[in-house]
Nucleic acid binder design. Structure first.
Length: 628
RNA sequence: GCCGACGUAGCUCAGCGGCAGAGCAGCUGUUUCGUAAACAGCAGGUCACCGGUUCAAAUCCGGUCGUCGGCUCCA
């Protein structure tokens, strides 16, 4: 989606002219900053997906209002038409000299301290290059900027015309919290005015699809400061969405041999000491609770240890495996306040979790089954725009536990499973969990940000820690392998994302209200109710405004069980259409005099801003058959 | 948590040292209407909270809480 605003050609973005342009824009911004804020220390300033940034340590904190001044100076500098000249250092000492003497721009040793550090990080044998831009302005003053940089850049600063500085953020030097926080300035640049305007318009449009805005407008979910940060409240319509999705998945899982289990929301700390989460997950745990008798409990951050205890509750034979325990389990994780993001990042969420206990010889088949289920879920949700990432072990890193043979077996199983099911994936070394490789599904939100959704993980660690066993055909104990999996990932994140993907216009099977029946005048309410009752298969509650309860048609209660509302507000038809359209109801059925007489409804479908004419209910049901 | 921005009626926003405002939503009444907003009236506020400056604070300053964009981390 964001690709629309990056490389349009077949060449990768990193090799495009646009990428170079943004890189040059970053240099131009750095030059403006060194002129306006003497003593500012430059660090890194790369192009990124939709623009560029530069991380800078300012002598004094700057504010967003200061961006206009920097932007103006950039425009002034750009017009000087400075060519970007590449220079290569002869060796490391030469590079050091250039940084000290030239990059410092006479502002002292201090301002180039980060650059010297970056120089040290350049791998041995790699050419060390600089990019220089200089010009003499109308007042005869020399304007110069030179930066340690791999390049490449565009020809001249003059090409940097259509740009905008977007925002300020803090960013740790080298991405490490223990380091000093720098000021990051984000900007964007494009080749044409239209492209820049297009991007800004895209951002405005994205804001309209924001799930937080739509969640409120459509009555799906909310947050309350009194309840607490990151703790969502599901409104009736959002709950319909959630339960509909759960039901779909539950049905699929039953067919695939899963068994439902239910476990509590808190557990003794002992459980998590045993699982090891108390150590590895410590900073994500809410504070512990102590009961009056001195026992310590924690709010559950994961479901796995509970399912493991269920596994351990009986002797297991190799004939019992695989065992698949599924639970829509709500977990609580303490996320730092600054990283909460609507429904996409919350502190209490429900995973569509399951744990499979399998024999080594079953690993591949079970994996294929799980990946197949995930594909089916994606298809049903209508999600086509996703990426699958296989996280494997980084051989360089020592944090991974377990035997090499196990890693090889499970990494191969994941990849083979993707192949068999036809799921396109990319392998990402170093993205495995410390206890095993995994497959993640990644989806973009309205703003083009990546979110990890569904996940499958192989785990050799927990069976080890809990000493899980089954008796093999050799009568000896064997250790099962665990597969953790959650096709949605979490209901909160998935529904947040779906809301943005569909801009609130959910597919028919998910729509909280599928059909709205709109009586034109009070005298049509009774008929409208009859229509609703036939579609939903049970009586509408309450009395019609005429004061008479519609006689229930006993034959009617076998309807297609649609979710139907009757708009009995005392408003004009136009108003009712407007309101129900804004609520993104898939079908509106209008009932007036003509319909009451002929036994028809006037049909209006979402997305088609027109009257589709009148039809009988049977005709309507036939029409929507493909969507059921 | 850290950096930056923002908190005015249920929602969207105006007001930015001198009487707290509009539209929508809500309530009441009238209207009973055929494809995206009927008409009229009423009600609705600790201007997020706490403190300070000032004759006077929604407005300026400080702190707290919350939200948003980033960093770090993850479903």
């Amino acid at each position: 989606m964001s690709g629309r605003f990056t490389a349009m050609s077949a060449a990768p973005y990193e090799e495009s002219h646009l990428y170079r342009l943004r890189h040059t824009a970053a240099h131009l911004m750095a030059q403006a900053v060194t002129e306006l804020y003497p003593g500012a220390k430059l660090t890194l300033g790369p192009p990124i997906e939709n623009g560029f940034y530069y991380d800078i340590e300012f002598p004094e904190a700057i504010k967003e209002a200061d961006l206009a001044g920097i932007e103006n100076r950039m425009r002034e500098l750009a017009k000087l038409d400075m060519p970007l000249v590449r220079r290569e250092a002869t060796d490391r000492d030469d590079a050091r000299r250039i940084i000290r003497e030239e990059c410092s721009l006479g502002q002292g040793e201090e301002v180039i301290s980060y650059k010297l550090e970056l120089l040290d990080a350049v791998p041995e044998g790699q050419t060390i290059s600089f990019y220089e831009q200089r010009a003499t302005d109308k007042q005869g003053k020399e304007r110069l900027f030179i930066d340690l940089c791999r390049g490449p850049h565009v020809e001249s600063t003059k090409e940097v015309r259509h740009f905008k500085l977007m925002s300020i953020a803090g960013a740790y030097w080298r991405g490490d919290v223990r380091n000093k926080m720098l000021t990051r300035i984000y900007g964007t640049a494009f080749e044409t005015k239209d492209d820049l305007q297009g991007y800004l318009t895209f951002l405005e449009e994205a804001a309209k699809r924001d799930h937080r805005k739509l969640g409120r407008e459509l009555g799906l979910f909310m947050f309350s400061p009194v309840v607490g940060q990151g703790l969502p409240l599901w409104l009736p319509k959002g709950t319909v969405l959630r339960e509909t999705m759960n039901q779909f998945l539950r049905d699929e899982q039953v067919k695939r041999g899963y068994q439902g289990v239910v476990t509590p929301n808190i557990a003794s700390i002992k459980l998590y000491e045993k699982s090891g989460h108390i150590l590895t997950f410590r900073e994500k745990l809410f504070p512990f609770m102590e009961d009056p008798e001195g026992e310590t409990f924690i709010l559950k951050p994961m479901n796995c240890p509970f399912h493991i205890e269920i596994y351990r509750s009986a002797m297991r034979s190799y004939r019992d495996l695989p065992i698949r325990y599924a639970e829509f389990g709500t977990v609580y994780r303490y996320e730092q306040s600054g990283e909460l993001a609507g429904m996409l990042r919350v502190r209490g969420f429900t995973q569509d979790d399951a744990h499979l206990f399998v024999r080594p010889d079953q690993l591949l088949d079970e994996f294929v089954g799980v990946v197949d289920l995930m594909m089916q879920v994606l298809k049903r949700l209508g999600l086509n725009d996703y990426r699958a990432r296989v996280g494997t072990r980084d051989p360089e890193n020592a944090k991974y536990i377990g035997h090499d043979d196990n890693w090889r077996l499970s990494e191969e199983a994941i990849i083979e499973a993707c192949r068999r099911v036809g799921l396109d994936y990319v392998v990402s070394p170093g993205d495995a969990a410390f206890y095993g490789p995994k497959l993640d599904l990644i989806i973009k939100d309205a703003l083009g940000r990546d979110w990890q959704m569904g996940t499958v993980q192989v785990d050799y660690n927990l069976p080890e820690r809990f000493e899980l066993e089954y008796t093999g055909d050799d009568s000896k104990p064997h250790r099962p392998i665990m597969i953790h999996r959650a096709p949605f990932g979490s209901l909160e994140r998935m529904i947040g994302l779906l809301t943005e993907q569909y801009a609130g216009a959910f597919p028919f099977w998910l729509a909280p209200v599928q059909v709205a029946v709109l009586p034109i005048a009070d005298r049509h309410v009774a008929y409208a109710r009859q229509v609703a009752e036939r579609l939903q298969g049970y009586p509408v509650l309450g009395l019609a405004p005429e004061g008479e309860q519609v006689a229930a048609d006993p034959g009617a209660w076998t309807g297609p069980n649609l979710r139907v509302s009757v708009d009995e507000s005392r408003e004009t038809l136009g108003k009712k259409i407007r309101e129900n359209t804004k609520q993104k109801v898939p079908y509106l059925l209008i009932c007036g005099d003509r319909d009451c007489e002929a036994g028809t409804v006037g049909v209006r479908a979402r997305g088609e801003e027109a009257d589709l004419g009148s039809m009988t209910l049977a005709g309507f049901l036939e029409r929507i058959q493909p969507e059921l």
